[in-house]
């Protein structure tokens, strides 16, 4: 139940981020174009779009961090499996488990480091502010230049995404241990979309 909800949330989030980033840049380009057109430009000038690139970058970085977690679940992260594919199934299995645990180790470490960084970079101050006990030696974190959002919120994609990714590695590892199956990504296929209809052309009369 929990896993199902998490899966859905993850998929909706990354699809939304992809669409939103594309839309933002499209609108920004159209806005800049209109700003050069007489009569419309006065209106266009009133609209501020200087933050578009910054927002797009933030959206994509978030998409990257959570999409990478989704990618563990779909088996899209490519590795050099030439060597281990020639081993006996038992040995191959050991290396697969080693690889998955290494992934969990790295992402887990990043989640902790990222968490520490975000905490020191403003989250601590925000927390103390929230509970009404500001302290001199805990400084307020920086903001992003254009949107002026606190960077600790923006950067929290690292600990959150990495923690989720770590969970996914452990999940895949457990499944592999139980069933011996790994998620496999098929490049030639977008899930849920029908196969292409083959071409129909006339042959030359001999």
């Amino acid at each position: 139940m929990f896993n199902k909800a998490l899966n859905h949330l993850e998929e909706i989030l990354i699809s939304f981020l992809m669409a939103a980033a594309t839309l933002v840049i499209f609108v920004a380009v159209v806005h800049r174009y209109l700003a050069g057109v007489p009569y419309i430009q006065d209106l266009a000038l009133k609209i501020h779009m200087s933050w578009a690139q910054e927002l797009c970058i933030i959206l994509f970085v978030w998409m990257c961090k959570f999409g990478a977690a989704y990618g563990v679940r779909t088996g899209i992260h490519v590795g050099v499996d030439v060597v281990i594919n020639r081993m006996s199934p038992a040995n191959r299995g050991r290396f697969v488990i080693f690889g998955l645990l290494a992934g969990a180790l790295f992402t887990g470490a990043i989640a902790v480091l990222g968490g520490t960084f975000v905490w020191d970079n403003g989250a601590h101050h925000a927390f103390l502010d929230l509970i009404g006990q500001p302290r001199e030696d805990v400084f307020e974190g920086p903001t992003t230049p254009d949107l002026e959002w606190p960077t600790w919120i923006v950067y929290s994609a690292i600990p959150l995404g990495s923690a989720l990714m770590c969970y996914r590695f452990l999940q895949v590892c457990w499944n592999f241990y139980k069933t011996g199956e790994l998620p496999k990504h098929d490049e030639s296929h977008v899930e849920g979309i029908d196969e292409q209809t083959p071409l129909d052309v006339k042959e030359a009369k001999q």
Partner: peptide, 26 residues
Amino acid sequence: DLKLRDVPKVLKDSANMSAMLLYIIT
């Protein structure tokens, strides 16, 4: 050739592929 209801799937699949590449880049 593509229905509007297929769009979320295309978005999700593109996000999956992009995230993998961006993660290697990072």
